[in-house]
């Protein structure tokens, strides 16, 4: 660098030591990671779009899938996800405030804001766990046909969804759920659904108020409702009773819908979880005075970048899973 003192400092790249991007090494590396992670998430969301465009006519409608709010009964599409989004944006705000307090070397303020950020992240992860549990449990139940399509049930008079328990008959049956305590040869077996296919079929036949709803979306953007006669014909294809969701089949419709839901929100939830852990580490480092001694709070800023990135990804997941 000494040789550059006498010449113009602008063009002297030979000596090294210049910082064209004006950012520290650590911050640049965090940006490298964020850009590559952004591309990973984009890959997931784009493949979700691929599957969705492939089955555009039969894809589940998110408003009908995510309708629950904890402690409340009824049909509340999207309110809870909107709340989760707000929590995450809010925790992003407390994170920026922590970074801002760090810049001004205000240790106590930074501690409080980091704490609030951790709480916000924890609420979000908890909400996501609850959302998963509700999704896995399912609410109405459905029938899968031989072709792997899902048939749902609707009450003809009110137009509301009908749960299997509303109309399925109870038939005498010999089959019981086989559990490991009943036999030493037990390895594993598929759990019996609450109702057998026969019980659902008989229930449909004897209850004139029940209609079948197929996966196909009509021109009004709603699922197609069959007439009573069509329903009775369609039920002949019934093969399985599906309750809730797993990676193989789900009662909401297209199998890929549940797969992508688990994969993308799960991957995002994992990011939030690790973000909370990293935030906790930084939180204790601030309390211990590590950054006070170091003379700067850049570590808080770097972790903040990661935390905002998680928020940024959620904004896109929210749009493509719940809104569009």
């Amino acid at each position: 660098m000494d040789s550059t003192v006498t010449t113009s400092t602008e063009e002297s790249v030979w000596g090294g030591g210049n910082r064209p991007l004006g950012a520290s090494y650590g911050k640049l590396m965090m940006w490298f990671f964020i850009v590559s992670d952004a591309l990973t998430f984009s890959g997931f969301l784009a493949s979700y779009g691929f599957s969705r465009f492939k089955f555009i006519e039969t894809w589940p409608i998110a408003d009908e899938v995510f309708t629950h709010v904890p402690f409340f009964h009824g049909n509340f599409p999207m309110y809870y996800v909107a709340f989760m989004t707000f929590i995450l944006i809010m925790s992003s705000v407390t994170m920026v405030l922590a970074v801002d307090a760090g810049h001004k070397m205000m240790k106590n303020k930074a501690i409080i804001y980091m704490f609030l950020t951790i709480i916000g992240g924890a609420i979000f992860v908890g909400s996501q766990a609850w959302e998963w549990a509700t999704f896995i449990k399912g609410d109405y139940g459905a029938i899968e046909t031989r072709g792997g399509r899902i048939l749902q049930f609707v009450k003809a008079d009110s137009g509301e969804r009908a749960a299997l328990s509303d109309f399925a008959k109870t038939l005498p049956s010999e089959r019981v759920d086989h559990e490991s305590r009943n036999g030493v040869w037990f390895y594993q077996g598929e759990a019996l659904p609450t109702y057998s296919v026969n019980e659902v079929v008989e229930g449909l036949k004897s209850n004139p108020n029940i209609l079948i709803r197929t996966e196909t979306i009509n021109e009004e953007g709603e699922k197609t409702l069959l007439t009573r006669e069509e329903s009775l014909t369609k039920i002949k294809d019934a093969k399985l009773v599906v309750e809730g969701a797993n990676l193989i089949r789900n009662e909401y419709g297209s199998r890929l819908f549940a797969d992508f839901f688990f994969f993308i929100t799960g991957f995002h939830g994992f990011h939030v979880f690790s973000g909370v852990i990293i935030n906790i580490i930084i939180f204790f480092n601030i309390i211990l005075g590590t950054y006070e001694r170091r003379g700067h709070y850049e570590m808080v800023e770097k972790v903040g970048l990661y935390w905002h990135f998680v928020d940024l990804v959620w904004v896109f997941v929210f749009t493509f899973f719940y809104l569009v």
Partner: peptide, 24 residues
């Protein structure tokens, strides 16, 4: 479009890209 607007403000103000050099 609204999502991209949100993404812009998160990146520009929360991740303070607004304050970084334009090359970065």
């Amino acid at each position: 479009i609204l999502t991209l607007v949100k993404a812009y403000y998160i990146a520009w103000d929360f991740m303070h890209l607004r304050d970084e050099k334009s090359s970065l």
